[in-house]
């Protein structure tokens, strides 16, 4: 799969390191030059430094037209919301995932049929499970 990811942070680097992702091609868009530099040696990863604020041109430079999946994993929730909806409604990307930490935004956009992930909430559930177990 060709996967376009917005945001370079622990979540992105963990995903790239996971064995499940070995067969995929990634393009990472981020304004964090240091994080992108750390990924520069990965053969199946293309990195693209983006300006602040992100312009839609950069999604196209990152190949959103041909992407099989778009993951908005940046720390900026508003940027994740806008770009996920662009990926879904303008470029008809088959799989779109949006990272949101704010529970209110998470509920609202789930109702608007965005696929939302919330790492903090998932962590909390894991912790509760661990405590019960």
């Amino acid at each position: 799969m060709r996967i376009l990811i917005l945001g370079c942070g622990p979540l992105t680097t963990l995903l790239l390191a996971s064995p499940d992702s070995a067969d995929h091609q990634f393009t990472i868009l981020s304004g964090d030059m240091d994080c992108l530099d750390d990924l520069a040696d990965e053969p199946r990863v293309i990195t693209l430094l983006t300006p602040e604020p992100l312009m839609q041109d950069y999604l196209q430079l990152g190949g959103i037209d041909n992407a099989d999946a778009f993951l908005a994993l940046s720390e900026d929730e508003y940027e994740n919301i806008l770009t996920s909806q662009i990926a879904k409604h303008i470029f008809n990307v088959g799989k779109v995932v949006c990272r949101l930490e704010n529970p209110q935004l998470q509920q609202f956009y789930t109702e608007l049929e965005l696929e939302v992930v919330n790492p903090t909430l998932d962590l909390l559930q894991d912790l509760n499970r661990a405590l019960q177990g």
């Binding site: 604020p53 900026d76 508003y78 940027e79 919301i81 806008l82 909806q85 935004l105």
Partner: peptide, 8 residues
């Protein structure tokens, strides 16, 4: 002054 916030 941010498009993203205006959309939300």
């Amino acid at each position: 002054d941010r498009d993203e916030i205006n959309l939300v």
